[in-house]
Nucleic acid binder design. Structure first.
Lengths: 148, 148
DNA sequence: ATAATAGTGGATAGAAAGGTCCACTACTCA
DNA sequence: TGAGTAGTGGACCTTTCTATCCACTATTAT
């Protein structure tokens, strides 16, 4: 039952990727983005609420309203999104569930896991929403551009 | 909500690590091992049942009975245990939940994730139950041996 | 046979994750 | 001011995971 992040986080990433790939101003609406990303709207709205309260999104009510990213998509890493949804400490838990696992009392897997985790987090940190949006858009344009 | 594996798998790893660190023959009892590893017995028994049905453990009933590993602990990698408990396809799912994510239609995170996954699985594959048992035992002996 | 031991399988219950619904508020425009 | 739009917050439901209990079966020793 491996999970990098929760369903809510997966939806957030998919929705925000779509949002970042839109032309025009950055504002997007929950309903629209959920339909396009093919994710459950009611549930994803809850995630948006949380992201708004966390200062990650700005909500605008009323006609013409929607959400805006607090930072431009090229300044938002996947790790940012994941930690915003899951909390800052998602990757902190000991894999073997040892309560006092740490520098002084490492569990048998501590070093192995720390290394793998560092590599994983480094990858998540250097990819941004803009990257994801670009590759999605490029794919839709039949990918005749080779470079990144 | 990051999870490398389920609670059941965590318990299996902890229990089997303790089992591998026992001196004498390889047989161990569910009750004993769960107490020593400080994990819930009833729940872990279910995991043992599954591992037995999967051919991973051999069950011996009656007085003096218990379980035996089907292979010596130095021949069982952590990946073996994880896949035995979680199923062969735990690490196969697309991180973004795209149903047709694969070689021909990769999701935007496919390459990033594949790389991180390979590194992670390589680490889990080359560490065995015996390794874990050794480091646990060494720790208990106050770790005056430096090498690995 | 009987008692004791140790794993088995099914029922059940609680907690967390995933998901839906609806009345409400805030805002815009006519 | 009224209608329509878009996010909010709370109630509620379902599924999955985690956990426990107990009657049962297989085995061993007396």
């Amino acid at each position: 039952m491996f999970k990098l992040y929760s369903k809510g986080c997966e939806y957030a990433l998919r929705a925000l990727t779509y949002a970042a790939s839109r032309s025009g101003n950055g504002r997007f609406q929950a309903k629209d983005v959920c339909e396009k990303a093919d994710i459950p709207e009611s549930f994803t709205r809850k995630v948006f609420q949380a992201l708004t309260q966390g200062g990650f999104l700005q909500a605008v009510r009323g006609p013409g309203g929607g959400y805006e990213l607090s930072r431009p998509p090229e300044k938002i890493s996947l790790l940012d999104v994941i930690e915003a949804v899951e909390g800052q400490d998602t990757f902190e838990h000991c894999v073997l569930g040892f309560p006092e696992c740490g520098g002084k009392h490492p569990c048998p897997l501590h070093e192995t896991w720390s290394k793998a985790k560092r590599q994983l987090m480094a990858q998540l940190e250097h990819r941004t929403l803009q990257d994801l949006a670009d590759s999605t858009t490029r794919k839709k344009r039949r990918a005749y551009i080779s470079g990144g």
